[in-house]
Deep mutational scan, measured.
Amino acid sequence: MQRVNMIMAESPGLITICLLGYLLSAECTVFLDHENANKILNRPKRYNSGKLEEFVQGNLERECMEEKCSFEEAREVFENTERTTEFWKQYVDGDQCESNPCLNGGSCKDDINSYECWCPFGFEGKNCELDVTCNIKNGRCEQFCKNSADNKVVCSCTEGYRLAENQKSCEPAVPFPCGRVSVSQTSKLTRAETVFPDVDYVNSTEAETILDNITQSTQSFNDFTRVVGGEDAKPGQFPWQVVLNGKVDAFCGGSIVNEKWIVTAAHCVETGVKITVVAGEHNIEETEHTEQKRNVIRIIPHHNYNAAINKYNHDIALLELDEPLVLNSYVTPICIADKEYTNIFLKFGSGYVSGWGRVFHKGRSALVLQYLRVPLVDRATCLRSTKFTIYNNMFCAGFHEGGRDSCQGDSGGPHVTEVEGTSFLTGIISWGEECAMKGKYGIYTKVSRYVNWIKEKTKLT
């Protein structure tokens, strides 16, 4: 034993070699072989497995989906700052455009905790909710729209109204504003409101030439003092309507412009014939205590009207009353817009006519005020429907199939267009061939041609 100890002390290297040989010859039971080890760690190889990531292109799944990435790591994937920024906006807080917040056709661009709407022409605001041009839906104005110097929408209202708090709607500024039905039992019968379409306001006024200088022999019209197929109006439903009495009662109609003036057809009036105007009328054979009678003290036909040349060209006249009318729910003026808007309103496509005229061709006159909704007829169809001249200051309205029309005794009465609950004068009943005849239409004086003249002559002093 002493000898062994001496050998170990003198030859430590020998001992180490012996131990190493023993270990190498022993069977290893701690580690699995290569094949079995792979069965336990069965993990798919990654895209760049075996390579240094710093030297390969980034992978979106590896960089940002398996674990949260930084902007720089995302930049490695896209290799483009702009594309990385677009991805980053949604990656950080989701897609803010998912709810489609942009209105009126706006395009949404996502941002971090926010979004941006790219608005089409005519709109602005956070969600493109603000109209900035009158060309689109009248700028959301209830009545009139004008573009300011910086191309912003400025709404306005006709006389007797003021802008509401929203700067879009119009509200009454006087007790009985024009064009409004205020009798409670008839307010439910107000005709369907007309909503502004998209309009090209630059070209809204037709490029028409008034044929002022045409000389033409007097034409022989049949029954051209021209509501057939209409309905009984309720008291106060058309408070701007008046009836004219002269040699015979209810020979023509008219509309209240203001307390002192009536507008009617020029062919209705004769110099030297006494005319009485009755406002607030409903049943011409009954006294309903809503009527107001006034005498006409002055007749002003349009300066281009000449019955000797043509009885229905420039067929418009103004009547001055001896005493002002007292405005109330049964006696209310009709609204008159400017030339541009009167023309736009007419193009809405349908209007209402009213009167006490004959209820059928050569038949009896109506006792109760009649009204009828009539569609506008395109000019080409209008011209083809008659052998008589249709001037540019006239328009056609009615039904091709016949059966409904204005008729004798309705002449001078109103053709009105309702705009968001307020009625505007767009025409004056003038003439036609018979009444409600198939293929024939009622012919009306186009008020847009005469609004400046009306307003100039009827100013209240």
Rank of each mutant, 00 (worst) to 15 (best):
P172H: 05
R298I: 02
V416G: 04
A149H: 11
C108H: 00
K274P: 13
K89M: 08
N36M: 09
P239T: 02
V447K: 00
C407N: 04
V374H: 02
E320H: 02
V326S: 12
R294Y: 01
A366K: 09
I344F: 11
Q237V: 07
E231L: 07
S385L: 10
N100L: 07
E129C: 01
S156V: 05
N313Y: 13
S385C: 08
Y161L: 02
H415F: 15
F399N: 11
E323C: 04
N258E: 02
D150L: 10
L244K: 01
Y391P: 15
R358C: 04
E208A: 10
N48C: 04
L376M: 12
I136Y: 15
V181K: 06
G229S: 14
I284M: 06
I429L: 12
N313T: 10
E323Y: 07
N343M: 05
G409M: 13
L460H: 09
V154G: 06
Y312I: 09
Q96A: 15
N127Y: 06
A173D: 11
V202D: 07
S156D: 09
A265G: 04
K339A: 15
R75N: 15
F55D: 10
L325F: 11
N283E: 07
I214G: 07
V4F: 14
P120E: 04
F360V: 09
V326R: 09
D110T: 11
L319G: 02
G398R: 05
H303V: 06
K137C: 04
R364S: 12
V183P: 11
K438A: 07
D232P: 15
F78R: 15
S354A: 14
V153F: 08
L130M: 15
G280Y: 02
L244N: 01
G421Q: 08
M437F: 14
F123S: 03
S365A: 13
S49F: 08
D150W: 07
I210G: 14
T461W: 07
L321W: 00
D232K: 14
Q219D: 07
C141A: 00
V451H: 03
N100M: 08
V227K: 10
W431S: 10
G230M: 09
C178H: 01
K438T: 13
D198I: 09
I428H: 03
T458L: 03
D33F: 04
T287C: 07
E165A: 06
K293P: 05
I309G: 08
C435S: 04
P175A: 13
K188Q: 11
R298G: 05
Q241R: 06
T85Q: 10
I334V: 13
N151P: 07
A164K: 09
G442D: 03
D212L: 06
D111H: 08
S184D: 15
H267S: 11
L32M: 15
D338R: 04
N313V: 11
S354L: 15
I390P: 10
E73A: 08
V56L: 08
L319D: 00
V263H: 00
P12C: 15
I214E: 13
A149N: 12
S329V: 05
A366H: 13
H314C: 03
F424V: 01
V77S: 11
S114C: 03
S423M: 11
N245P: 03
S70A: 14
C18D: 02
D198Q: 14
C268R: 00
C178V: 01
T133D: 09
N258T: 05
S411R: 14
C108Q: 01
F55T: 15
P235K: 10
L325D: 00
